[in-house]
Amino acid sequence: MKKYMLNMKVTGNDRLHANYCLLRLTADQILPEMQPGQFVQVHVENSPTTFLRRPISINYVDREKNELWLLVQLVGDGTRKMATYKVGDIVNVLLPLGNGFTKPETAAQNLLLIGGGVGTAPLLYWGAVLKEMGCSPAFLLGARSKEDVLQRDLFEQLGDVYITTEDGSLGEKGYVTNHSILEQMHFDRIYTCGPKPMMVAVAKYAKNLSIPCEVSLENTMACGIGACLCCVEKMNDGHHVCVCTEGPVFNSEKLTWLN
């Protein structure tokens, strides 16, 4: 897919609780085709300690408004700077980068999209595209606490939503892999994005039941376009591959996590 460098204009930037913001961006041109699971590289200007671009997943693409949504967790100087962007500000973005999730074989398959924390970001767009394709995706969202469950109302418009929180303030108490729905229902495919320990647990669960599982990695990146070889993940066959070009979405069987 052709990549673009766009100067995008901020159309909205909403704080979702203290630690997250939803940044909405538009461009003069019609936004190029983007696949769920792909990401963008944001140039964060005027943040003295932020030198490299910041990789952020595509949270949603609103074709009617020609808007790209980025759901950002404020963890350091770069993301905190992004949270200060005002409507009308210009942000330089490389997009779309990497490969997206693999489509299910048939619309009848039971699909479960499991997200942890801000890792739910790419699952919103994926869920929306799956629904358009005639699938009925279900979502299992895990978070530390009630406030960290993001965009719940939007997920609920796309399919059944199951929630776990570590403190039990919403949904079932515990981790996503403890949720009772995993005992009650059979799923044909699982897609997951979130903290690595969570994805490892999900991948192990899927492997035990021989369910195909795709995980979305967040290795630290420099270029984001396959030029620097900084973002590599070791595959089962011993080779290092770039997460930015071969991923960020991988079939979990290819990773060394399950060994």
């Binding site: 030198f51 490299l52 290795n219 620097c228 070889l229 070791k234 011993g238």
Partner: peptide, 23 residues
């Protein structure tokens, strides 16, 4: 060459460290 294990990169305020190892 497979290069060095991940992590291979560390950002600094005006640059970066790399340890790609000639992959």
């Amino acid at each position: 060459r497979e290069g060095n294990p991940y992590p291979r990169m560390a950002e600094t305020p005006a640059g970066m460290l790399n340890a790609v190892g000639l992959q």
